[in-house]
Design a protein around this nucleic acid. Sequence first.
DNA 1: ATTACAATTACACAACTGTGCAAGTATGAT
DNA 2: ATCATACTTGCACAGTTGTGTAATTGTAAT
Lengths: 133, 133
Amino acid sequence: MEPLAPTCSPAEHPGVRKQFPMPGTLAIERASRVCRALGEPARLRLMARLAGGECCVTELAEAEGEELSTISQRLRVLRAENIVVRRRRGKHINYSLADDHMSDLVSTVLAHASEPVEPVLKDDQQTEEEAKA
Amino acid sequence: MEPLAPTCSPAEHPGVRKQFPMPGTLAIERASRVCRALGEPARLRLMARLAGGECCVTELAEAEGEELSTISQRLRVLRAENIVVRRRRGKHINYSLADDHMSDLVSTVLAHASEPVEPVLKDDQQTEEEAKA
DNA sequence: ATTACAATTACACAACTGTGCAAGTATGAT
DNA sequence: ATCATACTTGCACAGTTGTGTAATTGTAAT
């Protein structure tokens, strides 16, 4: 449990040691919960669908080709993190994204995933500048 | 497994049915993997730290008060999703965020988590407009 | 009231994930 | 070559998570 103190001196670390103000435990906790909720293909698909407009559970189940109960469970997880919101519409319950932040998040991560893997600088390589230094 | 066809007609669903172009399976898969990687407090904290500048494993372990092996495993997960990149620096291996998308993602989700829960429109309520309609 | 449809929830089981310990690899110094 | 430091990985165990079936709740209509 107790980590040992490193023997490497601070001078060995040329990285920017700007001591970025770390977010509080609560913020980290909440943010990671949101990410985890989006961290499953099935749920992220649901989010992508909801980004196109609000839907009732039956619609979503039909679109996804899944059990109603399964969709409901997924929505439950999303709702627990305030990622989606629901509203009664007569016999149906319509779900939609909680706010603009959420559509931002979804589109950002999807945009990144759609991009080609940058072949510019592969892992474990050094830049040209570093090579001559 | 086979979902039953819903008996509710499309006319019942006033939501924007704009048939948003759904992202491909691959994009969804990759995006959700990224989210899942960020979906754990410990790993997200690591990301927040790396957002402040590149670090070696020992530094991170010391900062987090964790075993070196634990940090290494976390970095492994992040690296598997191309979220972070590593580079040898003599005796050390420095990790840093893979690209600008990643710092964007991290700061966006953290910003959202730091915000107060909007008290504007609670769940399962209807807007004023809808009340008179 | 009863009936029908929409959605949620409880439960149980399988699959996955994170962690620490211990062993292994890689680099630099002597 | 040996030694020490820095990091990674294999393994096993505990804790978590997603899914379907079946039972339950809630709403609207008759």
